[in-house]
């Protein structure tokens, strides 16, 4: 009896882990994919009908003018046999998930291993692969993130220790974030180009512009987190400002800093992509805009997914460093 119970509970534990951790994730992904596949049909129906008409199929209604004014769902129900082709059409408005996955595979693994310019045949990453373009974006993201974080921390220190900065800097920092970055990015690039800075530095500047703000806000809060009693204690030791900064304020701000850094790295990636839109010299932003110029929606979506994967990886990396750091600082596990 007890042996059977133990066996059951061992199976139960694995089953529970599957039910509690894996099932919800799979369920959400399955739901999203289902919605996506359903949405693909009306999105592509007009192009699919035109294509089918050209190939001589009988479609309802037969005239192009009638189809132009008809509702998408109505067209779908009138031509139920064309649902299949809407998931595999060449120039889809909304490509189906498997088409995006195929493009992602083709523009990474296939391009690098078999392409003429791929790393296998040429020794360097192909400028037609998402690995190359992801790398271009990643370089700008990391550089901008480092610049923005350092700037944010310095601003926070200034705000906490200098009353004039406290009163003057924060309003400007907030205003800076209310301007849409898409409007500002081309101007930043033009202004930096005129002083001889372009390419990587210009993109990193936009990344830094987006990432300094969360770091500054988080660090101001963190540096001010020690309570009055903690400050009084240091006063009883006659500690000077630099001692109270290094021994109390800075270590107390570390958890706040990491929370901000996670937001900052994601913002930094967005900044780098936006910075690549007007320049068109490589990067995921260039791929997205290029794809939209030439109606290559699969290319846009593949680049989007590449950006999402990179963002997830970067945020995970910051989180990993956070866990290591806080554990080294004696945090309760």
């Amino acid at each position: 009896m007890s042996g059977r119970m133990m066996q059951n509970s061992a199976i139960g534990r694995g089953g529970r882990w599957f039910r509690k951790a894996v099932m919800p994730v799979l369920a959400v992904i399955a739901t999203l994919l289902a919605i996506w596949y359903v949405a693909v049909v009306p999105m592509n129906i007009k192009e699919v009908l035109t294509q089918a008409e050209r190939e001589g199929a009988v479609i309802v209604p037969p005239s192009a003018a009638e189809r132009r004014d008809a509702g998408r769902w109505g067209l779908v129900f009138a031509n139920l046999d064309l649902i299949g082709p809407s998931w595999s059409t060449e120039r889809a408005r909304l490509p189906a998930p498997h088409q995006v996955a195929g493009e992602l595979w083709k523009s990474t693994w296939v391009e690098e291993t078999t392409g003429r310019r791929g790393i296998v045949q040429s020794g360097s990453f192909s400028n037609r692969s998402l690995i190359y373009h992801g790398g271009v974006t990643l370089t700008a993201t990391v550089l901008g993130f480092v610049i923005g974080s350092v700037l944010g921390i310095l601003l926070a220190v200034g705000i906490v220790y200098n009353r004039a900065m406290d009163l003057s800097v924060m309003p400007w920092a907030i205003i800076s974030q209310t301007i849409p970055i898409v409007a500002l990015a081309p101007m930043i690039i033009v202004v930096l180009y005129s002083v001889g800075l372009s390419g990587l530095v210009a993109k990193a500047a936009i990344s830094a512009y987006l990432s300094f703000f969360p770091v500054a806000v988080g660090m101001v809060k963190g540096l001010r987190s020690p309570d009055a009693m903690q400050m009084d204690l240091l006063q009883t030791y006659s500690a000077n400002k630099s001692q109270s900064f290094w021994k109390l304020r800075l270590p107390a701000s570390v958890p706040y800093l990491f929370a901000s850094l996670k937001i900052a790295i994601a913002a930094s990636l967005v900044g780098a992509i936006v910075g690549e839109l007007p320049v068109q010299r490589g990067g995921l932003g260039a791929r997205m805009l290029g794809g939209s110029y030439y109606g290559q929606t699969e290319q846009i979506w593949a680049a989007l997914f590449m950006a999402a994967v990179m963002a997830a990886g970067l945020v995970w990396l910051v989180g990993w460093i956070e866990r290591r750091t806080l554990r080294a600082m004696g945090a309760q596990p």
Partner: peptide, 11 residues
């Protein structure tokens, strides 16, 4: 000086 709370640095 000893305060009401121990006020030890958690790190």
């Amino acid at each position: 000086y000893v305060f009401q709370a121990a006020g030890l640095y958690p790190w």
